[in-house]
Amino acid sequence: MSEKTTPLPEKATPSGTHTAGAFDIRNIIGALLGIYGVILLLAGLFGDTASAKTGGINANLWTGLALAVASAVFLVWARLKPIVVPAHVEPVEDDPTRPAPRRRPADH
């Protein structure tokens, strides 16, 4: 009568792979847009609105809101579709046409 149950893995990724995490460019872009968005939101709420220059529209407030929304889109996108990094990548052979420094021979 006892049934064996196996616990489900928390993150279903193929064995030997991991995600890019904080090094995913979408996280970096989302964080920067979020920081600028919060700064502009605060400037729009508590700073001078400069109504004469913008035709009566609080440009800092609306731009801050737009940047906060764009930031949320990038961060949610990175969370829902993470970049999977393979476990093993073949080393790049030394290419004589590449402008980088040459590798030393193994016996050196």
Rank of each mutant, 00 (worst) to 15 (best):
A78P: 01
A78L: 03
T54A: 08
I29K: 10
L80V: 09
K81V: 09
V69P: 00
G47P: 01
E93K: 13
A66Q: 06
T63M: 09
I39V: 12
G64Y: 00
P105S: 02
I57S: 11
T54G: 05
E93P: 03
G16M: 04
P86N: 04
L45I: 11
P96Y: 03
L40K: 06
T13V: 14
V84H: 00
A100V: 13
T54Y: 14
S51V: 01
D48L: 02
A87P: 13
W77I: 03
R26C: 08
V89A: 08
I83T: 14
E3W: 12
W62Q: 04
A66F: 15
W77K: 07
F46D: 05
K11H: 13
M1E: 14
A20D: 07
F46H: 05
V38A: 13
T19C: 04
H108M: 06
I57Y: 07
L8K: 12
A68S: 15
K4W: 13
L65A: 12
D107C: 03
G37Y: 08
L75H: 01
T13D: 15
D107K: 07
R104P: 10
T5K: 15
I57A: 10
A66W: 13
H18N: 06
A12V: 14
F46W: 07
A20L: 06
Y36E: 06
P96E: 04
W77F: 11
F74I: 05
T63C: 10
T97F: 11
E10V: 14
E90Q: 15
F74C: 15
G64P: 00
G44P: 05
E93N: 06
S15V: 12
D107W: 15
V69I: 13
V85W: 00
R26H: 11
L42G: 14
L8A: 11
